[in-house]
Nucleic acid binder design. Structure first.
Lengths: 197, 197
DNA sequence: CCTAACTGATACACACCTGTCGCACTTACC
DNA sequence: GGTAAGTGCGACAGGTGTGTATCAGTTAGG
């Protein structure tokens, strides 16, 4: 419903909707309470045009979350090409999603922030993540069983690594990328080498 | 500066400031954009009175963060009585802070949400946490070295456990409290039994 | 090239929040 | 019990964001 698509938009109009979404992501990441005026300005458009593409502020936000869910799905698909071992797939996914975190910070916060015990994460994405963690568990990488717990820990640590200051002493220690740091932390948090006898 | 204290308030007035703070926590936790009117209403007071106690909305928010920082300090002190081993102190701290998370959810989000790479967490609290993690590292419980990383991972996982749905399958598995779950996850994430050779 | 689609500009109505008064009334506290 | 402090009520001014509408000008696309 976010994209009525009753009739196809003209090419430039469709291009502008993309610019609005990009501008919204950029502006709202800096200030979640930014007005539609500032978003339009950042997109090089007028507030009126923003309203023409998105009936309300909420509609714009919904479009942002939908866009992010699409990229999530794409990331999940990409991580599974070639049927790699679970840990490799997980690492691939983390690298892609980490880039998403950089370019879609606000949308990710929006999706994670549930209003009433309800996450905006699409069921398909949730299922994809659940599958990843199920495979990690089957191959003995983790021991945690609750899909919700695995998912939340993953997204939370991803978030923290992204907001980590630039004195990356821990990264130097590990000598790897930030994605690798996330993978290790998540695996550790979810019971890597099971420690309770 | 949050509490001018030029002259002591009358007893009932001071009592009302506490009610305002409590109401603010409750209302803002449900809706971070709630108006001062609704906060006053929840406190059984008028908006005018809220303005009398707190010059501006920002002043009220500052008072909330200051209050939370005080409770943080208290929690840190409580966790260290009797000079327990680091892991025990850490577990105690987690239990207390977990209760804080329940009763001061909005304030904790407020403190964690840095506006410009700047956390509202008081330096004293940050130092206290750093000390805890330093002791955990010295006793071999964790391997991570960056204080910021440890702190962020800790608060993030605490947050996720709190927002965990009620189907606590993982808790049943562990057979322990939620605080115990946090402790294990944090220790695991921060390199419990060091895994890289 | 010509029409339909799209945009910019502007204005309006509406709603909400903030901050500040002033005044009558109630309450705490010496 | 009397005084000063505190509160409720109402009102006002100022600001900001939202959503809608109109109209003239520009651009895409058959």
């Amino acid at each position: 419903m976010t994209t009525p698509a009753a009739r196809r938009l003209r090419a430039d109009a469709e291009h502008n909707t993309a610019r609005i979404l990009a501008a919204a992501e950029e502006v709202l990441a800096a200030d979640p309470a930014a007005s539609l005026e500032r978003i339009g300005e950042a997109a090089g458009l007028t507030r009126a045009t923003v309203h023409r593409r998105f009936a309300s502020r909420q509609a714009l936000l919904d479009a942002l979350t939908e866009q992010l869910n699409q990229r999530y799905l794409s990331a999940l698909a990409q991580s599974k090409v070639g049927n790699p071992p679970p840990l490799v797939a997980f690492r691939r996914l983390t690298e892609i999603v980490f880039d998403l975190k950089v370019s879609h910070r606000y949308a990710m916060d929006l999706v994670s922030a549930q209003d009433n015990c309800r996450s905006a994460l699409s069921p398909e994405v949730a299922a994809g993540l659940e599958e990843i963690f199920a495979q990690l568990r089957e191959s003995g990488e983790i021991t945690a069983t609750s899909p919700a717990w695995c998912r939340q820990v993953y997204l939370a640590l991803l978030n923290e690594v992204h907001e980590l200051p630039d004195d990356t002493t821990d990264l130097v220690e590990a000598g790897r990328s930030r994605a690798e740091l996330v993978v290790r932390a998540v695996v550790g948090a979810l019971g890597g080498p099971r420690r309770h006898p």
